[in-house]
């Protein structure tokens, strides 16, 4: 019997090595897998590269992971938030590396990783400092910049519903980066609000099929709060 469910946060986080690239879903607090981020803090891996749209808020979650010195590099589109002082302090002190990526390029780089596409050309960022040093090519009269796929060793994802095969649905704008990160992670770990029986999810409603998912942890925490 295929059963991707795990019973504990320790099982969900097992085997994440030092130096891993970890994709973290969510846009602000919505769709962000907070229990898994706390699990990563507990688990102890360091020297991490974190890929997330934002760079943490306050002193919890990703901000806490950074504050503990466990993050070597962050790849994100928008490091500023209502309180991103932990990241900003580390960045100014030269203690964390930052790779700023346009939000659409970031999503597409992960989609490409999940789809076996090693690189692609895009018009986004052409002529800007975010394209400096990158290969460009003129195609049909327009200039494009080459962007490489962005795979993760691990993806941490939040779903609304999941079954034991790892089929997932998402809630409203909580979908955001989660499905592309699920595709791009070598090991994809899901925290889900609702765990349902196999067959309960209408196949027409499944957004991420279980082929992209490795572990499912039931975390019925309620509504997202705090941005």
């Amino acid at each position: 019997m295929i059963d991707k469910r795990v019973a504990t946060i320790a099982e969900a986080m097992a085997g994440i090595p030092d130096g891993a690239t970890v994709l973290v879903g969510g846009f602000g607090a919505v769709g962000q897998p907070n229990a898994l981020i706390d699990g990563l803090i507990e688990q102890g891996a360091g020297g991490l590269t974190i890929v997330a749209n934002n760079a943490g808020v306050g002193h919890v979650g990703l901000a806490r992971l950074m504050e503990l010195g466990r993050v070597r590099k962050i790849v994100c589109s928008f490091p500023r938030s209502s309180d991103s002082s932990v990241f900003e302090g580390l960045y100014r002190a030269g203690k964390i590396e930052l790779e700023i990526v346009p939000q659409g390029t970031m999503a597409e780089r992960m989609r490409a990783a999940g789809a076996g596409v090693p690189a692609f050309f895009t018009a986004t960022a052409v002529g800007t400092k975010l394209a400096q040093g990158k290969e460009t090519r003129e195609i049909d009269g327009r200039t494009y910049v080459l962007e490489c796929a962005l795979p993760g060793d691990v993806a941490l994802v939040e779903a609304w519903e999941a079954d034991r095969w790892g089929n997932l649905t998402f809630r409203q704008s909580g979908r955001n980066f989660n499905p592309v990160m699920a595709m791009a992670g070598k090991t994809t770990v899901v925290q889900t609000q609702h765990l349902v029986e196999l067959g309960e999810l209408d196949p027409e409603r499944v957004v991420t099929p279980g082929i992209f998912v490795d572990r499912v942890l039931h975390v019925p925490y309620g509504d997202p709060t705090g941005f």
């Binding site: 760079a55 928008f78 500023r80 991103s84 900003e88 930052l98 700023i100 939000q103 659409g104 986004t124």
Partner: peptide, 18 residues
Amino acid sequence: SENDTAPAVGGAMDLAAG
């Protein structure tokens, strides 16, 4: 500025080009 502390681009470059 070229040396902005932690510049934040979000989706602006995708939107402007796309």
